[in-house]
Design a protein around this nucleic acid. Structure first.
Length: 849
RNA sequence: GGACCCUUAGCUCAGUUGGCUAGAGCGCGUCAUUGACGUUGACGAGGUCGGAGGUUCAAGUCCUCCAGGGUCCACCA
């Protein structure tokens, strides 16, 4: 087979992927110890972004590596219905068609969005294939598959029976644009400038007044009390009295509550249980009425007529104006405070009282915390574990209800005649059901997406039903972005432990964000988004994979580097050409044979590759992807291509050449699957898939021979260095006296050093390659020799300086007595070597002079 | 208000338990080269590891403080 000079990834990648997929190589092998990774399911409706490329790459490196190590690997892919995300997109489509969600039933909307997503879904999966994902497609799970819904309902039932689920009136985070509530974690808090207004509430005697401070004057229309701290001397006597609520005809009491901070504002807080979480709590403690004055769309209700139907924003202006007119404003100051925003549309989140489903997270969080503290689950980077524990400590109850149709329905029904009577039932397709003669009406809300995502590990592996994949639960590693630590990782641990009594995964690896080339966060609005598919089109999938993992450490945000991708592309080409050379030398009819190191180069490359194999093993075990990839890169490029292939041109050892090529391909495969498999398929003596083949094993070599090759390298490097320093014609002969290492390797030295001749002489002349430590000379004339004098002087000075440093170290009593003996011995040897060098260089200088 | 992280070569970044003259990719300079590869080869320049203290025989690595940058969490009205 004739191979093109340069590797063209686009020509091979799609076919190679198809070959893998049709061969069944992505499915777990029937034998071997299980190893499992679950892919964080990408949005079925979207395109992959560069962050996905990183995630998939890291996971795929592990999957391919452990597969080659003989483990029974399952890498389970997924597709996410991305409830709210997709809903927002679809609602925009509806608006474009002049329709709204209120024109359809839940079933109609659900099936419309289903069809919409179904039409898009293939894109994302094709993109995963373009990345080379070795996922087990037969086991793909969509987050709205029946088994997901069934399991989520089962979990809900168990929580219900354990009385951890409750329905209650609580303050929820509500987006009045999208008309749905959110979990606390979904709200984006921003520090913003706001105003703190001081407002006087007149006493009933119309003489005195109490001044309160608030950032949201419009909510005063829903006030039901004022609160002061019980120990606040200023207000103590007012507790129990009543004040006039301005702009209304209502009177409200003054109460005392520990929550109030005497030192903030005026020390008096207006209590609006309908629109503030703290006030809601205080209201409960004091059995105060809840007055809702803002509705789901953000408009005023239950207020004096002039404010009815105004937006909260307008109402604020009107209220302030009215207060001013009545001379009740007592000043304002600008403050910095946190304001909640919708993470999608950025509008201000309204705290509203809603009757919704909540999960009591306390017991779940406690158990998750124990699993973390006991070390059952480990983290890379390890510091994230502490962050997660801190999060679990402060966790509040979780609002599971979402008012959007695109999601898993909450399987609960309400008695038509008794609003407090709720029952669990899975017949969510029916609007009403009949139970023992009583009619129940279904809950229209759906679950928070993270409630189902939090169950992903045991759902995808069928851990509850004990299916075939259940042996892969708990999974070995959960790899995801640092941003999902609390909203996803925490929930998987909590719900996993709760439902299966096992941790969902043994290790969590968190990667940082991929920033743009300037270190800025990528966003569509900034227009700095890097599309992984464009990178693949330009450089190839392997190049993207190699480039994105290079120099990247866990949990750390890092800028994208096109230079690294280019380096990856070049590496693939290097590998391609190594194989071209070796295959050319082996010929079409090469018969496989056991590798037997013979030449010095053979022994040396064996040692180098053996070392690379074991280094990569330990780096991957430590999740040090960049170091593993770097080790592979330099073993292949520096050792194999630059030294071994060059050396082989004079001394062919077919068995070794084949072993070196195979080993290079094997160690590179997890990092660059396409090019390695492409080459593997061109090997005449192989008829299997590299991806299903084995991780290489080390073979025997002689250390003495390997070290001798290293001495030759030192000679060659010194020769090249001196040549580069010398002016004029660069091709000098190399002369040597009694040096058997040189005598035995004249052809090799000649080739590697570009010497015109390597000749044995009786009488040395020219420039001695002093630093190489060999009896070798460059045959140059006196003038050229003189040119080199300055260089020798410089090197001598450097050597002396360093020797002095070593001497100082050794003359330090404390160092000799306290440092490890091996280190001291090493220092002594180093000094001796350095002194030898100094002697040789000095002697050489004398000769010149 | 809490917590975490970052500051190392012109650029983007590695550098595990403190210990060989601090590394990579890209960029830069000099030179080379008609068959494995210009997506190349050889050689080289370039860093007092943000600053100041401290611990230690030994600090880029550990501790304290300071400066600058970033991220996450948070119901102070």
């Amino acid at each position: 087979m004739k191979l093109a000079k340069a590797y063209d990834p686009n020509q091979f990648e799609p076919n190679i992927y198809a070959m893998w997929e049709t061969s069944g190589a992505f499915n777990p092998s029937p034998t071997g110890e299980p190893y499992s990774i679950i892919m964080p399911p990408p949005n079925a409706n979207g395109n992959l972004h560069i962050g996905h490329a990183l995630t998939i790459n890291l996971e795929d490196i592990l999957a391919r590596y452990y597969r080659m190590k003989g483990r029974s690997v399952v890498y389970i892919p997924g597709a996410d219905h991305a409830g709210f995300e997709t809903w927002v997109v679809y609602e925009r489509e509806l608006a474009r068609a002049g329709k709204s969600r209120f024109d359809f039933s839940r079933e109609q909307l659900y099936s419309q969005v289903w069809n919409y997503v179904d039409g898009q879904r293939g894109n994302m999966e094709l993109q995963l294939r373009a990345l080379g994902t070795s996922a087990s497609w037969d086991n793909l799970v969509f987050t709205l598959d029946k088994k997901v819904i069934d399991t989520v309902h089962q979990t809900f039932k168990k929580l219900w029976d354990d009385k951890l689920i409750y329905r209650g009136e609580r303050i929820v985070n509500y987006c009045t644009v999208h008309e749905t509530s959110f979990a606390d974690i979904e709200v984006v808090h921003k520090n913003e400038k706001g105003k703190l207004w001081k407002i006087a509430y007149p006493m009933l005697d119309h003489i005195g007044e109490i001044v309160i401070a608030t950032t949201r004057p419009e909510t005063m229309l829903g006030d039901v009390a004022l609160a002061v701290h019980p120990d606040d001397e200023r207000y103590k006597k007012l507790v129990g009295t009543r004040v006039q609520l301005p702009l209304t005809d209502r009177e409200i009491p003054v109460i005392a509550d520990e929550y109030v901070d005497k030192d903030y504002g005026t020390g008096v807080v207006k209590i609006t249980p309908g629109h503030d979480p703290n006030d809601f709590e205080i209201g409960k403690r004091h059995e105060l009425e809840i007055r809702n004055v803002i509705d789901n769309s953000g408009r005023m209700i239950n207020v004096p007529t002039q404010y009815i139907s105004m937006t909260a924003e307008d109402a604020r202006k009107r209220v302030l104006a009215a207060l001013k007119a009545e001379e009740l404003l007592r000043g304002e100051e600008t403050i910095q405070h946190a304001v909640g925003h919708c993470y999608k549309c950025d509008s201000v989140i309204q705290p509203l009282v809603k009757d919704q489903w909540f999960l009591n997270t306390k017991p779940l969080a406690e158990r998750a915390k124990q699993a973390l503290q006991s070390g059952e689950i480990s983290f890379t980077p390890s510091s994230r574990k502490r962050v997660l524990i801190q999060y679990l400590d402060n966790l509040r109850d979780w609002n599971l209800s979402r008012q959007i149709p695109w999601g898993i329905p909450i399987p609960a029904f309400q008695n038509e005649n008794d609003s407090s009577d709720w029952i669990f039932d899975e017949r969510v397709d029916e609007e009403t059901i009949d139970v023992n003669g009583t009619t129940y009406r279904r809950e229209e809300d759906t679950f928070d997406t993270w409630f189902s995502s939090g169950q992903w590990p045991f759902i995808t592996t069928d851990a509850l039903s004990g299916g075939e994949l259940s042996k892969y639960y708990p999974t070995d590693v959960m790899e995801t972005g640092v941003d999902l630590l609390d909203r996803w990782v925490s929930r998987m641990i909590m719900l996993g432990l709760y439902m299966t009594d096992k941790i969902p995964f043994k290790h969590v690896y968190m990667h940082g964000m991929v920033l743009d080339e300037k270190g800025q966060k990528m966003s569509k609005s900034k227009g700095n988004v890097i599309n992984p598919m464009e990178m693949i089109a330009s450089y190839g999938s392997d190049a993207l994979r190699l480039g994105i993992v290079a120099s990247r450490s866990a949990g750390q945000d890092q800028a994208f580097s096109t230079g690294n991708i280019v380096a990856g592309r070049n590496f693939c080409n290097k590998l391609w050409n190594i194989s071209r050379f070796i295959q050319d030398k082996l010929g079409e009819n090469y018969q496989p044979r056991a590798p037997k190191p013979k030449s010095l180069a053979d022994h040396w490359i064996t040692r180098e590759l053996n070392q690379a194999i074991t280094d990569i093993d330990s780096y991957i075990a430590d999740y040090r992807f960049a170091e593993a990839s770097d080790t592979m890169y330099h073993a292949v490029w520096d050792s194999v291509a630059d030294w071994y292939v060059e050396s082989s041109k004079d001394n062919l050892n077919p068995g070794m050449l084949a072993w070196v090529l195979e080993t290079s391909l094997r160690i590179a495969h997890p990092f660059a699957p396409f090019v390695t498999e492409t080459i593997w398929q061109t090997l005449t003596w192989k008829d299997n898939l590299l991806m299903s083949d084995k991780w290489p094993e080390t073979i025997e070599y002689e250390d003495i021979s390997a070290s001798q090759f290293e001495r030759l390298q030192a000679l060659v490097t010194e020769f090249r260095y001196v040549m580069a320093e010398l002016p004029g014609n660069k091709r000098y002969p190399l002369l040597y006296q009694t040096d058997s290492l040189i005598a035995d390797n004249t052809d090799l030295i000649k080739r590697l050093s570009q010497a015109s001749e390597v000749t044995s002489v009786d009488q040395a002349r020219g420039l001695r390659l002093a630093a190489s430590g060999r009896e070798a000379w460059l045959d140059v004339d006196a003038d050229t020799l003189y040119e080199h004098q300055a260089n020798l002087e410089m090197r001598l000075a450097e050597a002396r300086q360093y020797a002095q440093k070593l001497e100082d170290r050794l003359s330090n009593e404390a160092y000799v007595s306290k440092a490890p003996e091996a280190l001291v011995d090493q220092t002594k040897k180093e000094l001796a070597d350095k002194q030898d060098l100094i002697e040789r260089l000095a002697h050489e200088l004398e000769v010149i002079a």
